[in-house]
Write a protein that binds this DNA or RNA. Sequence first.
DNA 1: ATTAGCACTCGTAGGGTAAGAGTGCCAGCA
DNA 2: TGCTGGCACTCTTACCCTACGAGTGCTAAT
Lengths: 359, 359
Amino acid sequence: MELSERKKKILAAVVDEYIATAEPVGSKHIAEKSGLEVSSATIRNELAELTTMGYLQQPHTSAGRVPTAQGYRIYVNELMQLQKLSEEETQEINRTLDDRLRQLDRLVSDVGKLAAEMTNYPALAMTAKAPSTVKRFDLIYVDSNTFIIVAMLSDNAVKNKLVHLPFSVEQSMVQKLSTVFNASFTGITEEQISPLLISSAERSMGDTMGLTAVIAAFAIEILSEEKAAQATLSGGAKLLQLPEFRDPDKAHKVMNYLSDAEHLYNLPGMDFGDDLKVLIGPENIAEELKDSSVILAKYNAGDGMQGIIGVVGPTRMDYSTVAAKLSYIADGLSKVLSGSGGDKALPGFGKLMIKDTNE
Amino acid sequence: MELSERKKKILAAVVDEYIATAEPVGSKHIAEKSGLEVSSATIRNELAELTTMGYLQQPHTSAGRVPTAQGYRIYVNELMQLQKLSEEETQEINRTLDDRLRQLDRLVSDVGKLAAEMTNYPALAMTAKAPSTVKRFDLIYVDSNTFIIVAMLSDNAVKNKLVHLPFSVEQSMVQKLSTVFNASFTGITEEQISPLLISSAERSMGDTMGLTAVIAAFAIEILSEEKAAQATLSGGAKLLQLPEFRDPDKAHKVMNYLSDAEHLYNLPGMDFGDDLKVLIGPENIAEELKDSSVILAKYNAGDGMQGIIGVVGPTRMDYSTVAAKLSYIADGLSKVLSGSGGDKALPGFGKLMIKDTNE
DNA sequence: ATTAGCACTCGTAGGGTAAGAGTGCCAGCA
DNA sequence: TGCTGGCACTCTTACCCTACGAGTGCTAAT
């Protein structure tokens, strides 16, 4: 059923007002503030219809109206207009992204913090990591019983590890190790590193001291680490400021659920096509979030990898502003990480394209 | 003033009971449960004295007694006996530490999570990092416009960065860079890397493409990162389960305070000599924590560095159990990180001593 | 020194009432 | 036919009052 123009305006007014105040909104308020030149009685009739249509509901007979999930959905899909960010807001985001450039490894979780700060809701940030392989090994000989393993992965991340030995090794041996590993251990996934492979490598270079095993263990470690996704929650405390989470039990339920990285990761599935996704109340799969809404934005992490930042709040969330801020941050993050877009030049590095690979 | 044996027993009983129930405890309860063979009236007299001595207080005239900060202090110093951990508990801790060995870089914050899980209070974990210098640089030539910078720091941490260039460099140039950096940029702190030094290095090798600046920027980045401490909070949601934080405003105040790494770091100062420190209520410097207690345990992170794990809870905290658990965890962590103690062998690595340096 | 008894205090829970906000509906008007 | 003012009704919230009970402090007796 199509909504009349006036119904739309009224619905939007209810949602806007409820978002701002968290109180059920009455006909009088709307009559005064919505710009419609009609009386509260007329509004009441419209409200009654919107209620039977399922877009609004009443907590009890003599209370004002509150949007239903369906009502929010219409609002998000048709009625809301993406808020323009103020000059200061875009500047704050830009500044944070720029600052954080220096330490890209913490970028993602820091951006989570930024999102939490900007929106005043708890925010989540995650990266999706694909299974990868080692592209090349380098061994740096430090002294007679110390060397550094450096491995460059298929996604161009670089990992290293310092190894102290309780015995001496010759530089030539280190070089030999390097050669063998580059021959046998590159281009294979974690699962393919078998004990068999290790022992055959051991034999081929006459390693009796377990060096091969050490390096292989390192390879397994970093490959499994790359596979695992990283998800963080920032600003959980912000939940407690919201009237709908004054009940500590509710707040605890939600916050506890979100503290588990596993849950964060299962929130959306990465399977949405749009850059922005809004999950309203019962649209969430998790029981714990049936009374909350989630807004997610995808960003491009370079090398074809994607990540998600998002915000969790009550269904009465300020969808338009939050969505605008998230998109802007996600956008900036994409530019920083993938180097595309380039209108925000990387400060201090001139024309060079830098990728920090310290994880 | 010295406390009589009976007063001590009564004080301990009050604290124990209050810790367990969070309710003011009355004379009758103690008469029945404390094993003292006296009537409640006698207890009442003793309670009255303990109250005037400042170890107990009454929320109001006709309520039971609640320990004061001073009372807790006596309890912690003299009365409580360190809880023995159960077999399962020590096993859980050991297992977690063992599991985490594979990914030492996340160890510290994971141990925070462990502490939160084991104690059911929010836990914090931090490392103290000393200002350091670069010990050696290595540049790995990958292809004509890509190389990897590897830097080993004075504390033996190893950092790396992948650099993509928009132009070609010859392998000989990379080698030259490596030599110059090892000569001029090792052994100096972040502050000592001046524009002057950079430009003189640039001239000495005829670098017109800004390569020197890139590597110098990297050096500055990792040195400043090393200096900055890392502090995380885990399990903040657990606060909400405690009766003293049913008031969302209180919970918010504390949680918000703890969300800031800066604050965590200023909690104790690292300046305590003992391995275990208990800060009770008003003993905390921060206004926000005047109603809470903090238990901190130091661990040894190897190479002379120390870290802290801790737990935050209400003054009515289960000091004995929490202290026992924290000490045990800190101990295990020291062994894992510094390799000393050695009774828990590092699984899978035989006799080799491994240090993961990916931060 | 300990105890039993008792009057007293004070917070909390329960119930009853008044106020206020908002509705639904009806009758009148354009 | 659609809009509006008016009015009775509903329901929640805040407030006050009271009764109850837990726990105390004191006194007199052992």
